[in-house]
Design a protein around this nucleic acid. Sequence first.
DNA 1: AAATGCCTACTACAGACGTAGTTTGCTGGA
DNA 2: TCCAGCAAACTACGTCTGTAGTAGGCATTT
Lengths: 122, 122
Amino acid sequence: MKKDARLTRFELEIMELLWSLGETSVREIQETIPEKSRPAYTTVQTIVQRLEQKGAVHRTRKVGNALMFEAVVTRKSAYRRLIQEVLDLFGGSAQPLVAHLLESGKLTLEDLKELEKKEGRR
Amino acid sequence: MKKDARLTRFELEIMELLWSLGETSVREIQETIPEKSRPAYTTVQTIVQRLEQKGAVHRTRKVGNALMFEAVVTRKSAYRRLIQEVLDLFGGSAQPLVAHLLESGKLTLEDLKELEKKEGRR
DNA sequence: AAATGCCTACTACAGACGTAGTTTGCTGGA
DNA sequence: TCCAGCAAACTACGTCTGTAGTAGGCATTT
């Protein structure tokens, strides 16, 4: 029931699917994962259960004998938390992080221009 | 001996100190951590040992009965790895990440302009 | 030399994580 | 109505993390 608990890498991956699929079942989540890296059904089930305990997901209803789940936490808030943690490691400011992205080529000047334009429009 | 192993949150914090202090001892690292959150000496010691096993740090010499350590991995490469992981969660592209930073006010248009200027100069 | 103090090396341990097997129960079709 | 099949719930377990205690060694001070 902890609100806003820390989510692990794998839990975030499952959340990602929850966010894009909307209300869905464990089976569907599992089958949406590419075969190469698809874990056992029960593994996904366990993760969903843990997400439920953390309050990131909740049951909506039962379809046949399968439970349906839905994300409670929004993508945005989960990302906010994640980013904050990374920023803390970068001394609390986002500038060095972006500088790093530019330096390593993960981000181009064009990307920046584009983002700037969008941001200016907000 | 694993090269480029994943570092945990706490390990990264210790690395941060290693990077800024340069060659140093466990004692010094421990005492550099603010009292409020300062763990026991042996805790720091354990982390340094694990960092050693992961090949992120190595012993340089002995001063009195204390070992001196030094970072092997660079800050930049550790951050690169960290960022890559976050980017993977963001669909592999950095744009959404930066967009998120802008949206949440972690980054301003001025920051962008500044970064752009610097980047243009490289 | 004996005691004191600091450091290393070893050991411990609970809780989180990733991963999955087993048991039990519901459900739709034969 | 009875069973095959799927899902839920429970259980398991090795590894990783954060956290630290303890035993033993070396050096400095009496």
